[in-house]
Design a protein around this nucleic acid. Structure first.
Length: 208
DNA sequence: AAGCGGATCGTCT
DNA sequence: GACGATCCGCTTG
């Protein structure tokens, strides 16, 4: 029986690969849409439960605020690519670029709920599998759990079937989305641009 | 439960 | 030469 239409790409996670046009929207819109999606690397799968939007050159808190540099160049590139930066001399943080090429929007991944590959995540983090809520709750922690580094992942295309690191959609529908100010920034600290799933115990801070 | 300081270094002034 | 889109462990209450 021939297929009349191109089937959507399915994978080991049983979920469709999120395509590039998904990321063409403004960062706050992309951030909301990302809630409930899956971050996938090999056997490891985590559901996105907390993100932050950064509004490019118009946003004093964004790494893109000073304009394009070697460090933030990925943010100015095409949507759907990983922007990974090194922070506090020890940690990495993962973003996905959004908006058209030339516009530097981005979404920071702040917390995941581990779905599969918990053992691998714990190994990468160098911790025992005791407190599972601490495995991927926080931008630095989730990068460590998924082995995300600047050298390895900065600029990676998250929409490519060939990519090691992907965002997938398993049909999960996010309900009860909370919006709060962003965490850990000093400039434009009041702006509500942090999006999280209410009543999810894997967000990086409680009670927000 | 909450607050503080140390670790540690790439990036831009 | 200062400063982070952080995390952890130790202190105090």
């Amino acid at each position: 029986m021939p297929l009349s239409k191109q089937p959507m790409a399915r994978t080991r996670a049983g979920a469709t690969l999120v395509s590039r046009d998904f990321y063409l929207d403004p960062p706050d819109r992309v951030a909301q849409k990302l809630l409930g999606k899956l971050l996938v690397r090999g056997e490891m799968v985590g559901r996105i439960v907390e993100v932050e939007a950064y509004f490019g050159e118009a946003d004093a808190a964004s790494h893109a605020f000073p304009g394009k540099t070697a460090r933030n160049a990925v943010l100015f590139g095409p949507p759907g690519h990983a922007y990974v930066y090194f922070i506090y001399g020890m940690y990495f943080c993962l973003n996905v670029s959004c908006e058209r090429e030339g516009r530097a929007g981005g979404v920071l991944f702040r917390a995941l709920e581990p779905i599969r590959g918990v053992e691998a995540m714990a190994t990468n983090r160098g911790v025992a599998v005791t407190r599972i809520t601490a495995l991927t709750s926080g931008p630095g922690r989730l990068c460590q759990a998924f082995g995300v580094t600047r050298e390895r992942d900065n600029g990676a295309d998250l929409t490519s079937p060939k990519s090691d690191l992907q965002i997938r959609d398993d049909g999960f529908v996010a309900s009860d989305v909370l919006v709060t100010p962003r965490i850990g920034i000093s400039k434009d600290a009041e702006r509500p641009a942090r999006f999280l799933l209410a009543d999810n115990s894997f967000v990086s801070k409680r009670g927000a």
